[in-house]
Simulated assay, not measured.
Amino acid sequence: MNIPPAIRKVYQGAASRQQMFRMFDRHIQRPNRWEDNAAALYSGEWFEIGEAEHDYMFEILPPLWIRGSMFAMREFSTGQVTSVFFALRIDEQIRHFHGYCDLSDKASVETMRVAIIDRESRPVRAMTREERLEHIWSSTADQYRGYADDSSPTAGRDKRTIAFFCGQAGSTLRLLEDLTDHEIAAKLPVHLRYLPAQAAA
Rank of each mutant, 00 (worst) to 15 (best):
I3M: 07
P5D: 14
K9H: 15
Q12F: 15
A14I: 01
R17C: 05
Q18N: 12
F21D: 05
F21G: 00
R22G: 00
R26E: 04
Q29G: 00
W34S: 14
D36T: 00
A38S: 06
A38H: 12
A40Q: 12
A40N: 10
S43N: 12
G44K: 01
F47R: 08
E48V: 02
G50W: 02
G50F: 08
Y56L: 11
M57D: 05
M57W: 11
F58S: 07
I60L: 14
P62M: 02
P63Q: 04
R67V: 07
G68M: 04
G68I: 02
A72R: 10
T78S: 07
T78H: 11
G79I: 14
G79D: 10
V81W: 06
V84L: 01
F86A: 04
R89A: 10
I94Y: 15
H96E: 05
H98E: 07
H98Y: 14
S104A: 15
A107T: 08
V109I: 05
E110T: 07
M112E: 00
V114T: 11
I116M: 07
D118T: 11
E120V: 01
S121E: 00
P123G: 00
A126C: 07
M127N: 05
E130R: 08
E130F: 02
R132W: 01
R132F: 05
E134L: 11
W137P: 01
S138K: 02
A141G: 10
D142W: 14
D142K: 09
Q143K: 12
A148W: 12
A148C: 10
S152F: 09
S152W: 14
T154C: 08
T154D: 12
T154E: 13
A155C: 09
T161Q: 13
A163L: 12
A163S: 09
F164N: 02
F164L: 11
Q168K: 12
A169V: 02
G170L: 08
G170Y: 02
L173P: 03
L173K: 09
L173T: 00
L176R: 06
L176E: 01
E177Q: 14
T180Q: 13
A186L: 15
A186H: 15
L188S: 07
L192C: 03
R193Q: 14
R193P: 06
L195T: 00
P196L: 03
A197V: 03
A199I: 08
A200S: 13
A200H: 11
A200Y: 06
